[in-house]
Simulated scan of single mutants.
Amino acid sequence: MMRFQNPVSNSFCTLTIFSIVVISAFSFISCDDSIDPKTTYKERYILNFIIRGDTTLQIATLTSSYNVEGVDPSINEIDPAIKDADIKIWYNGEVYTLRDTTIARSDTSRYNNPVHCYYINNFPPAEGKSVIVKAELNNGKKLTAETKLPSNIGIDSCDRIIPLSYKNQFSIVWRKLEEEVYYFVRFRIYYKHNSEFHIVEVPLDYNTINGKVTPVYPGVTRKTIFNYELSALDSVMKNISLGDGQKSSYQIMRGEYEVIIMDKPLSDYYSSIHGYMDDFSIRIDQTDYTNVTGGYGIFASYRKQLLAATLKEEYIRSFGYKAGN
């Protein structure tokens, strides 16, 4: 087993891209909610593997269920990670083997040992391709799953020069993919202050409820049409240098649309826990979503698509900032 710190640790942290929303949610409980938790214990195995389309470094985890005294699973202090498994993926006529490693654990409130995971580097996922994963444990147990890497979206319209004199909004619109999938969307501004680079996200708009102003962001959605209010962009631009009289020390570099396209299994998983929820709903029938044969967990993928946007120089200068190159 190989143990190292980078680049896996850095990539592992970026998996929370969906904080969103996506990766941190893939911890599967050790028993089915519909079953009495203190019936005869049966060990189960959980494979979680999300292929990221924005990197060639991919990370998987393999764990087992566990039994505890009583009914509180949080008292368990024995790491359920499974080591020394054989995990392979079949892709585009090639077979790739994942290697096991450990990375530093940021939260040691429950487990003190490093996080055990499996990784593969230099794996180039391409849009629209099918991928199969097979994991074989030392006891002979096998887990398998398959997914199809999502394709890039086809843009119908996108405001790449902002703002436009005849519009109080800027927008991005694309065609829906054949499968019903979810997207994560955001528009961000890249700027520099005192030689340091910064990024700030722009909301679609602001709502005022009971006197409190709240930003509205796209979040995870099936929508494919997004209209950003120019007034929301104005607010973000002003707040970049809030309280600082040296406006000219800020340099606005660019704007950028980011769209993350989830594949069908990832969308199905998200829908299983959020699909028909609203602020007033309580779900009592939620089940563990899995697309892994022979066990539990999820094997899925997502793709990131970026579109650069230019903020007009006269607009930037209206806030006292400099326009970057």
Rank of each mutant, 00 (worst) to 15 (best):
M1N: 14
N10Q: 07
N10W: 04
F18D: 04
S19I: 01
V21C: 08
S24Q: 13
A25N: 10
I29C: 11
D32F: 06
T39H: 11
T40E: 12
Y41R: 00
E43I: 07
Y45L: 01
A60D: 01
V68D: 06
D72N: 12
N76M: 03
N76A: 05
K83F: 09
A85W: 05
A85S: 05
D86N: 14
K88H: 10
I89F: 00
N92R: 04
G93Q: 05
T97I: 08
R99W: 10
T101Y: 08
D107V: 03
D107M: 00
S109L: 10
Y111H: 07
C117R: 02
N122E: 06
A126S: 13
E127Y: 03
G128D: 03
S130N: 11
S130G: 11
V131G: 03
E136Q: 14
K141V: 11
K142T: 13
P150C: 04
G154I: 14
I155V: 09
I162G: 04
Q169D: 12
F170V: 08
F170K: 06
I172D: 06
V173T: 14
R175T: 13
L177S: 04
E179M: 00
R186M: 13
R186G: 14
R188T: 08
Y190W: 14
Y190E: 15
Y190K: 14
Y190A: 15
Y191P: 10
H193V: 09
N194H: 14
S195M: 13
I209D: 12
I209P: 10
N210Q: 12
G211R: 06
K212V: 15
K212T: 15
T214E: 12
V216R: 00
Y217V: 05
Y217A: 07
T224Q: 03
I225R: 02
E229N: 13
E229K: 13
S231G: 13
A232C: 02
S235V: 14
L242H: 11
G243T: 08
D244P: 06
Q246C: 09
G255T: 04
M262V: 02
Y269S: 01
Y269A: 01
Y270G: 00
H274R: 07
Y276T: 15
M277P: 09
F280R: 07
S281L: 09
S281K: 10
I282Y: 11
D285Q: 06
N291L: 01
N291C: 02
V292D: 09
G294N: 03
G297E: 05
I298V: 12
A300W: 00
L311I: 06
K312Q: 15
K312Y: 15
K312E: 15
E314K: 10
S318E: 13
F319M: 04
N325F: 08
